[in-house]
Protein backbone atom coordinates (compact mmCIF):
# COMPACT_ATOMS: atom_id res chain seq x y z
CA UNK A 1 0.00 0.00 0.00
CA UNK A 2 1.10 3.53 -0.64
CA UNK A 3 1.79 5.73 2.37
CA UNK A 4 0.62 8.73 0.39
CA UNK A 5 -1.60 9.08 -2.65
CA UNK A 6 -1.96 12.41 -4.38
CA UNK A 7 -4.89 12.53 -6.80
CA UNK A 8 -5.20 15.30 -9.36
CA UNK A 9 -4.17 18.06 -6.99
CA UNK A 10 -4.26 21.61 -8.39
CA UNK A 11 -3.26 24.82 -6.69
CA UNK A 12 -3.53 28.37 -7.94
CA UNK A 13 -2.05 31.54 -6.50
CA UNK A 14 -4.10 34.25 -8.14
CA UNK A 15 -3.49 33.69 -11.83
CA UNK A 16 -0.36 31.64 -11.29
CA UNK A 17 -0.82 27.87 -11.45
CA UNK A 18 1.50 26.20 -8.94
CA UNK A 19 0.23 22.64 -9.39
CA UNK A 20 -1.70 21.30 -12.35
CA UNK A 21 -3.58 18.04 -11.68
CA UNK A 22 -0.63 16.45 -9.96
CA UNK A 23 -1.03 12.75 -9.16
CA UNK A 24 1.58 10.52 -7.59
CA UNK A 25 2.01 7.67 -5.13
CA UNK A 26 4.64 7.39 -2.45
CA UNK A 27 5.22 3.70 -1.65
CA UNK A 28 5.48 2.45 1.91
CA UNK A 29 8.93 1.80 3.39
CA UNK A 30 10.94 3.33 0.58
CA UNK A 31 12.73 6.56 -0.27
CA UNK A 32 10.85 8.63 -2.79
CA UNK A 33 12.70 11.36 -4.66
CA UNK A 34 10.68 14.42 -5.57
CA UNK A 35 12.63 16.15 -8.32
CA UNK A 36 12.18 19.24 -10.38
CA UNK A 37 13.76 22.58 -11.18
CA UNK A 38 13.31 25.59 -8.91
CA UNK A 39 9.78 26.95 -9.09
CA UNK A 40 8.33 23.72 -10.50
CA UNK A 41 5.81 23.40 -7.66
CA UNK A 42 7.61 20.95 -5.34
CA UNK A 43 7.35 23.19 -2.29
CA UNK A 44 3.68 23.91 -3.02
CA UNK A 45 2.99 20.18 -3.12
CA UNK A 46 4.96 19.54 0.06
CA UNK A 47 3.09 22.33 1.86
CA UNK A 48 -0.23 20.84 0.80
CA UNK A 49 0.83 17.41 2.08
CA UNK A 50 1.79 19.07 5.39
CA UNK A 51 -1.59 20.82 5.45
CA UNK A 52 0.10 24.19 5.64
CA UNK A 53 -2.07 25.17 2.70
CA UNK A 54 -4.96 23.38 1.08
CA UNK A 55 -5.37 22.31 -2.54
CA UNK A 56 -7.89 24.09 -4.78
CA UNK A 57 -8.97 20.72 -6.13
CA UNK A 58 -7.91 17.09 -5.91
CA UNK A 59 -7.57 14.70 -3.02
CA UNK A 60 -4.81 13.36 -0.82
CA UNK A 61 -4.85 10.08 1.09
CA UNK A 62 -2.54 9.26 3.96
CA UNK A 63 -2.36 5.47 4.42
CA UNK A 64 -5.66 5.17 2.63
CA UNK A 65 -7.52 7.80 4.70
CA UNK A 66 -8.32 11.27 3.41
CA UNK A 67 -5.68 13.62 4.84
CA UNK A 68 -6.83 15.27 8.08
CA UNK A 69 -5.26 17.50 10.78
CA UNK A 70 -4.47 14.60 13.14
CA UNK A 71 -2.12 13.18 10.53
CA UNK A 72 0.47 15.90 11.12
CA UNK A 73 1.61 14.01 14.21
CA UNK A 74 2.62 11.09 11.96
CA UNK A 75 4.50 13.26 9.49
CA UNK A 76 7.95 14.70 10.00
CA UNK A 77 8.82 17.72 7.88
CA UNK A 78 12.17 19.38 7.35
CA UNK A 79 11.44 22.43 5.16
CA UNK A 80 13.95 23.96 2.82
CA UNK A 81 13.47 27.30 4.56
CA UNK A 82 14.26 26.16 8.07
CA UNK A 83 15.47 27.76 11.23
CA UNK A 84 15.23 27.81 14.99
CA UNK A 85 14.47 30.41 17.63
CA UNK A 86 17.86 32.05 18.02
CA UNK A 87 17.44 33.08 21.65
CA UNK A 88 16.07 29.75 22.86
CA UNK A 89 18.21 27.02 24.34
CA UNK A 90 18.74 23.95 22.17
CA UNK A 91 17.17 21.51 24.64
CA UNK A 92 14.12 23.67 25.39
CA UNK A 93 13.56 24.23 21.73
CA UNK A 94 13.69 20.53 20.85
CA UNK A 95 11.24 19.81 23.68
CA UNK A 96 8.86 22.52 22.46
CA UNK A 97 8.88 21.27 18.87
CA UNK A 98 8.45 17.66 20.01
CA UNK A 99 5.47 18.57 22.21
CA UNK A 100 3.87 20.44 19.32
CA UNK A 101 3.98 17.09 17.52
CA UNK A 102 2.05 15.53 20.38
CA UNK A 103 4.85 13.92 22.41
CA UNK A 104 4.67 14.06 26.19
CA UNK A 105 7.40 15.99 27.95
CA UNK A 106 8.92 12.85 29.49
CA UNK A 107 8.92 10.87 26.23
CA UNK A 108 10.46 13.76 24.36
CA UNK A 109 13.25 14.12 26.93
CA UNK A 110 14.13 10.44 26.84
CA UNK A 111 14.24 10.31 23.05
CA UNK A 112 16.19 13.55 22.80
CA UNK A 113 18.81 12.15 25.15
CA UNK A 114 19.21 9.16 22.88
CA UNK A 115 19.53 11.27 19.72
CA UNK A 116 21.92 13.75 21.32
CA UNK A 117 24.16 10.83 22.28
CA UNK A 118 24.04 9.34 18.81
CA UNK A 119 24.99 12.66 17.21
CA UNK A 120 27.50 13.33 20.01
CA UNK A 121 26.00 16.71 20.80
CA UNK A 122 25.01 16.14 24.45
CA UNK A 123 26.89 19.24 25.53
CA UNK A 124 24.70 21.51 23.38
CA UNK A 125 21.57 21.11 25.51
CA UNK A 126 21.95 24.41 27.38
CA UNK A 127 23.51 26.35 24.52
CA UNK A 128 21.53 29.03 22.81
CA UNK A 129 20.86 28.41 19.14
CA UNK A 130 22.66 31.61 18.16
CA UNK A 131 25.87 30.07 19.51
CA UNK A 132 25.64 27.14 17.08
CA UNK A 133 27.20 27.01 13.62
CA UNK A 134 24.93 26.47 10.62
CA UNK A 135 25.86 22.80 10.37
CA UNK A 136 25.22 22.28 14.09
CA UNK A 137 21.80 23.91 13.82
CA UNK A 138 21.00 21.65 10.86
CA UNK A 139 21.72 18.58 12.96
CA UNK A 140 19.37 19.85 15.67
CA UNK A 141 16.72 20.47 13.03
CA UNK A 142 17.08 16.98 11.64
CA UNK A 143 16.56 15.55 15.12
CA UNK A 144 13.43 17.62 15.72
CA UNK A 145 12.05 16.42 12.39
CA UNK A 146 12.22 12.73 13.24
CA UNK A 147 11.97 12.76 17.04
CA UNK A 148 8.28 11.89 17.16
CA UNK A 149 9.03 8.76 15.09
CA UNK A 150 6.84 9.73 12.17
CA UNK A 151 5.88 6.99 9.73
CA UNK A 152 6.29 9.43 6.89
CA UNK A 153 9.17 11.90 6.67
CA UNK A 154 9.44 14.74 4.18
CA UNK A 155 12.92 16.17 3.73
CA UNK A 156 13.28 19.24 1.53
CA UNK A 157 16.94 19.65 0.50
CA UNK A 158 18.21 17.88 3.63
CA UNK A 159 21.87 18.01 2.58
CA UNK A 160 22.17 21.72 1.93
CA UNK A 161 24.48 23.44 4.35
CA UNK A 162 26.28 20.28 5.48
CA UNK A 163 29.94 19.46 4.99
CA UNK A 164 30.75 16.06 3.42
CA UNK A 165 31.15 14.38 6.81
CA UNK A 166 27.77 15.55 8.07
CA UNK A 167 26.15 14.88 4.69
CA UNK A 168 27.30 11.31 5.08
CA UNK A 169 25.99 11.18 8.64
CA UNK A 170 22.56 12.41 7.53
CA UNK A 171 22.50 10.03 4.56
CA UNK A 172 23.20 7.12 6.91
CA UNK A 173 20.44 8.29 9.24
CA UNK A 174 17.97 8.50 6.36
CA UNK A 175 18.79 4.95 5.32
CA UNK A 176 18.58 3.77 8.92
CA UNK A 177 15.14 5.38 9.30
CA UNK A 178 14.00 3.66 6.12
CA UNK A 179 15.33 0.31 7.37
CA UNK A 180 13.38 0.86 10.58
CA UNK A 181 10.21 1.10 8.51
CA UNK A 182 9.69 4.81 7.79
CA UNK A 183 8.65 6.06 4.38
CA UNK A 184 10.62 9.04 3.19
CA UNK A 185 10.01 11.72 0.63
CA UNK A 186 13.17 13.49 -0.40
CA UNK A 187 13.29 16.66 -2.42
CA UNK A 188 16.76 17.49 -3.64
CA UNK A 189 18.80 18.77 -6.54
CA UNK A 190 21.61 16.41 -5.69
CA UNK A 191 21.09 13.74 -8.38
CA UNK A 192 23.97 11.59 -7.20
CA UNK A 193 22.27 11.04 -3.87
CA UNK A 194 18.94 10.40 -5.61
CA UNK A 195 20.51 7.56 -7.58
CA UNK A 196 22.19 6.28 -4.50
CA UNK A 197 19.33 6.18 -2.00
CA UNK A 198 15.98 6.63 -3.77
CA UNK A 199 13.86 3.70 -4.82
CA UNK A 200 11.20 5.76 -6.58
CA UNK A 201 11.08 9.23 -8.11
CA UNK A 202 8.68 11.77 -9.52
CA UNK A 203 9.83 14.68 -11.63
CA UNK A 204 7.74 17.84 -11.61
CA UNK A 205 8.24 20.58 -14.15
CA UNK A 206 6.06 23.61 -14.76
CA UNK A 207 3.52 22.44 -12.19
CA UNK A 208 2.99 19.03 -13.83
CA UNK A 209 4.32 15.56 -13.13
CA UNK A 210 6.51 14.75 -16.12
CA UNK A 211 7.83 11.43 -15.00
CA UNK A 212 7.40 9.00 -12.16
CA UNK A 213 8.04 5.44 -11.15
CA UNK A 214 10.71 3.13 -9.82
CA UNK A 215 14.12 4.61 -10.40
CA UNK A 216 15.57 1.57 -12.24
CA UNK A 217 12.57 1.45 -14.52
CA UNK A 218 12.72 5.19 -15.21
CA UNK A 219 16.39 5.02 -16.07
CA UNK A 220 16.00 2.08 -18.40
CA UNK A 221 13.06 3.85 -20.03
CA UNK A 222 15.57 6.48 -21.10
CA UNK A 223 18.03 4.02 -22.62
CA UNK A 224 18.89 5.05 -26.16
CA UNK A 225 20.85 2.09 -27.56
CA UNK A 226 24.11 3.60 -26.48
CA UNK A 227 26.96 1.22 -25.69
CA UNK A 228 30.27 1.76 -24.04
CA UNK A 229 33.20 -0.17 -25.41
CA UNK A 230 36.75 -0.44 -24.16
CA UNK A 231 39.34 -1.82 -26.51
CA UNK A 232 43.02 -1.98 -27.35
CA UNK A 233 44.24 -0.60 -30.68
CA UNK A 234 43.96 2.61 -32.73
CA UNK A 235 41.05 4.97 -32.09
CA UNK A 236 41.34 6.11 -35.71
CA UNK A 237 40.90 2.61 -37.15
CA UNK A 238 37.93 2.06 -34.78
CA UNK A 239 36.31 5.26 -35.98
CA UNK A 240 36.84 4.28 -39.60
CA UNK A 241 35.33 0.86 -38.99
CA UNK A 242 32.04 2.35 -37.64
CA UNK A 243 30.87 3.81 -40.91
CA UNK A 244 27.53 5.62 -41.09
CA UNK A 245 25.43 3.04 -39.19
CA UNK A 246 26.96 3.93 -35.87
CA UNK A 247 27.52 7.29 -34.23
CA UNK A 248 30.54 7.88 -32.03
CA UNK A 249 29.35 10.14 -29.23
CA UNK A 250 32.39 10.32 -27.01
CA UNK A 251 35.84 8.84 -26.77
CA UNK A 252 38.83 8.91 -24.47
CA UNK A 253 42.12 7.16 -23.91
CA UNK A 254 43.51 5.68 -20.75
CA UNK A 255 47.10 4.31 -21.09
CA UNK A 256 46.79 1.60 -23.76
CA UNK A 257 43.00 1.26 -23.26
CA UNK A 258 40.56 3.26 -25.44
CA UNK A 259 37.02 4.04 -24.40
CA UNK A 260 34.21 4.90 -26.79
CA UNK A 261 30.50 5.59 -26.38
CA UNK A 262 28.58 4.64 -29.51
CA UNK A 263 24.96 5.11 -30.46
CA UNK A 264 23.49 2.38 -32.62
CA UNK A 265 21.02 3.40 -35.30
CA UNK A 266 17.56 1.85 -35.43
CA UNK A 267 17.34 -1.77 -36.57
CA UNK A 268 20.85 -2.75 -35.61
CA UNK A 269 22.13 -4.59 -32.52
CA UNK A 270 25.24 -4.59 -30.44
CA UNK A 271 26.32 -7.70 -32.38
CA UNK A 272 26.44 -5.66 -35.58
CA UNK A 273 28.64 -3.14 -33.81
CA UNK A 274 30.99 -5.83 -32.58
CA UNK A 275 31.25 -7.44 -36.02
CA UNK A 276 32.38 -4.14 -37.43
CA UNK A 277 34.87 -3.44 -34.70
CA UNK A 278 36.45 -6.83 -34.03
CA UNK A 279 38.55 -6.97 -37.25
CA UNK A 280 40.22 -3.66 -36.34
CA UNK A 281 40.63 -3.53 -32.57
CA UNK A 282 40.79 -5.89 -29.62
CA UNK A 283 37.55 -5.53 -27.56
CA UNK A 284 38.08 -5.63 -23.81
CA UNK A 285 34.54 -4.97 -22.58
CA UNK A 286 31.15 -3.82 -23.78
CA UNK A 287 28.13 -2.61 -21.79
CA UNK A 288 24.95 -0.70 -22.36
CA UNK A 289 25.04 2.86 -21.12
CA UNK A 290 22.22 3.66 -18.70
CA UNK A 291 21.53 7.39 -18.46
CA UNK A 292 22.13 9.05 -15.08
CA UNK A 293 19.34 10.87 -13.26
CA UNK A 294 21.24 14.02 -14.06
CA UNK A 295 20.93 13.34 -17.81
CA UNK A 296 17.28 12.45 -17.48
CA UNK A 297 16.55 15.54 -15.43
CA UNK A 298 18.15 17.85 -17.96
CA UNK A 299 16.57 16.05 -20.87
CA UNK A 300 13.04 16.18 -19.42
CA UNK A 301 13.24 19.74 -18.21
CA UNK A 302 14.77 21.14 -21.38
CA UNK A 303 12.63 19.19 -23.82
CA UNK A 304 9.53 20.89 -25.19
CA UNK A 305 6.44 19.48 -23.53
CA UNK A 306 4.74 17.90 -26.55
CA UNK A 307 7.65 15.52 -27.20
CA UNK A 308 7.22 13.84 -23.87
CA UNK A 309 5.35 10.59 -23.57
Amino acid sequence: MAVLQVEKVSKWYGKHCALNEVSLEVPEKGIFGLLGPNGAGKTSLIRIINQITGPDSGRIFFRGEPLKPEHVNHIGYLPEERGLYRKMKVGEQCLYLARLKGLSSADAKARLKEWFERFEIGSWWDKKVEELSKGMAQKVQFITTVLHQPGFIILDEPFSGFDPINTNLIRKEIIRLKDEGASIMLSTHNMASVEEICSHIALINQSKVMLDGEIKEVRSRFKESIFELSFKGQMLSFTNALGTQFELLQHSSDADLRLARVKIKQGLTVNDLLQRAIPHVQIESVSEYIPSMNDIFIKVVEQPEEQMV
Binding site: V72, P79, R82, Q141
Partner: peptide
Protein backbone atom coordinates in the same frame (compact mmCIF):
# COMPACT_ATOMS: atom_id res chain seq x y z
CA UNK B 1 12.66 30.64 9.03
CA UNK B 2 11.29 28.62 11.92
CA UNK B 3 7.72 29.42 11.03
CA UNK B 4 7.35 26.68 8.43
CA UNK B 5 8.54 24.07 10.92
CA UNK B 6 5.98 25.26 13.46
CA UNK B 7 3.04 25.48 11.10
CA UNK B 8 3.63 21.92 9.96
Amino acid sequence: RIVEVIIS
